[in-house]
């Protein structure tokens, strides 16, 4: 008897790909994907249920399908895709609360995996070089994605207290990067000219998209309760990253970068959020000792390798028009 896994946020690329990967895992019997809009791509053996995690219908889905593992990954990072900050907050926080309420009532659920992010640690000049799981942010996030994730983590901890019989695994993933990822950070690196904050060289840590899939499957198929930082080994500084990418950069004062980001957000050119500005000024590093010792997970890409893989995809995109032209000429 394998496990029945419910995946939230399946309409987004990373959720869909995880659901497909999980469906291929031999120890998982069935995968049910839940979202308000159907996924765009191929979902293979995953059965899709159209439900909104913001209303109590989700509890019925869990009960009817005998779900024993819930993988929550519908926390969205940017308001752009949701249609405004209000909707984003509602989706993230109210959605998570409803999901946790449904899990608490359920008798079948015995494992909960939450995809969180290292963004909860924030970025400030008072940060230690490496955050461990026991540390919190130096300054509580006041808005945006970081605040949502911080609040969701609080609700998840509350749930873990109330239902000690459920294994709750919280994966704090570093910035996910890879050829298929579309995140604020990957869009930033895809800009034709990269704006940088003058006089700062932040340390960045990346997690390859394949490793994110692997670690979520790892957590969904094993009982490993706890909170874990997950990131590729090593660090890259922003200067190193853009030089490896080979994109021209322009350094400007912090307020100018913030202004530019706001303008680009208004013009719907990019989702450059305030917490991202902090990250690109002060950077962040997380300690992954516990990932190895307790979670028993080994990422297959280091930070540098994950970024190299991303660089290859960016270069391939840049040469795409040329390739089309070559194809036309050949035809």
């Amino acid at each position: 008897m394998g496990r029945v896994v419910l995946v939230t946020g399946i309409s987004r690329d990373i959720g869909r790909r995880f659901a497909r990967a999980a469906a291929g895992d031999p120890s998982i019997d069935r995968v049910i994907g839940v979202d308000v809009v159907p996924p765009r791509g191929d979902i293979g053996d995953v059965s899709f249920v159209r439900a909104d995690i913001r209303n109590p219908v989700i509890a019925k889905v869990i009960a009817k399908e005998d779900v024993d593992t819930v993988v929550h990954m519908s926390v969205i990072a940017t308001p752009g895709s949701a249609g405004g900050r209000g909707t984003m907050k509602e989706l993230n926080v109210i959605g998570s609360m409803q999901l946790l309420a449904a899990c608490q009532k359920s008798t079948t659920v015995d494992r909960l995996v939450v995809k969180s992010t290292t963004t909860v640690y924030g970025s400030s000049p008072r940060d230690p070089a490496m955050f461990t799981e026991d540390m919190g942010p130096k300054r509580l996030p006041s808005s945006g994605y970081a605040k949502d994730v911080y609040e969701i983590e609080g609700y998840v901890r509350g749930f873990a207290r109330r239902r000690p019989d459920v294994d709750v695994t919280m994966i704090r993933a570093a910035n996910v990067i890879g050829p298929h990822v579309s995140s604020p950070l990957s869009n930033y690196f895809r800009l034709p000219v990269i704006p940088r904050v003058l006089g700062f060289d932040p340390r960045l840590q990346f997690l390859h998209e394949d490793d994110l899939m692997r670690v979520l499957t790892h957590a969904a198929t094993r009982a490993v309760p706890g909170t874990f930082n997950v990131a590729g080994d090593g660090l890259l500084t922003l200067a190193q990253a853009v030089r490896r990418l080979g994109t021209p950069t322009v350094a400007m004062p912090r307020f100018a970068v913030g202004r530019l980001g706001a303008t680009m957000r208004q013009a719907r050119l990019s989702d450059f959020s305030p917490e991202q500005l902090g990250f690109l000024t002060y950077g962040r590093g997380v300690d992954t000792t516990r990932m190895r010792t307790q979670l028993g997970f080994e990422p297959s890409y280091t930070t540098a390798e994950a970024f190299a893989d991303f660089c290859r995809s960016v270069r391939a995109d840049a040469h795409a028009p040329e390739r089309v032209r070559e194809g036309v000429v050949r035809a």
Binding site: P125, P128, A129, M130, L198, G199, D201
Partner: peptide
């Protein structure tokens, strides 16, 4: 040191880190 532009990146490159218990012990 880590708030100031230029100084902060030079300090980190030169091997400095923030004076806090976590970093000192690490």
């Amino acid at each position: 040191v880590f708030q100031m532009p230029v100084v902060s990146s030079l300090a980190r490159k030169g091997g400095a880190t923030l004076a806090c218990v976590e970093d000192a012990e690490r």
